[in-house]
């Protein structure tokens, strides 16, 4: 089945939240996946760690 079904011709409506569908691409080896916390490189978003800015919301690398 083509997942584009969910996106194609649907358009987006007001007052709704949309998270894009992940499309399976590469995967980490199980050993590395367990250490990182995910099998999928595109979902791996490690915490940069405490810098001077202790406010939240920056969870990209």
């Amino acid at each position: 089945m083509n997942y584009d079904y969910y996106d194609r011709n649907k358009g987006m409506q007001l007052a709704r939240a949309y998270v894009p569908f992940q499309r399976l691409n590469q995967v980490f080896e199980p050993k590395e996946a367990l250490m990182k916390g995910t099998l999928f490189p595109e979902l791996y978003m490690p915490y940069k760690g405490k810098g001077e800015d202790l406010n939240g919301g920056r969870y990209y690398e």
Partner: peptide, 8 residues
């Protein structure tokens, strides 16, 4: 590890 699980 647990933090990354929340993102997934």
């Amino acid at each position: 590890f647990l933090r990354e699980r929340e993102i997934v």
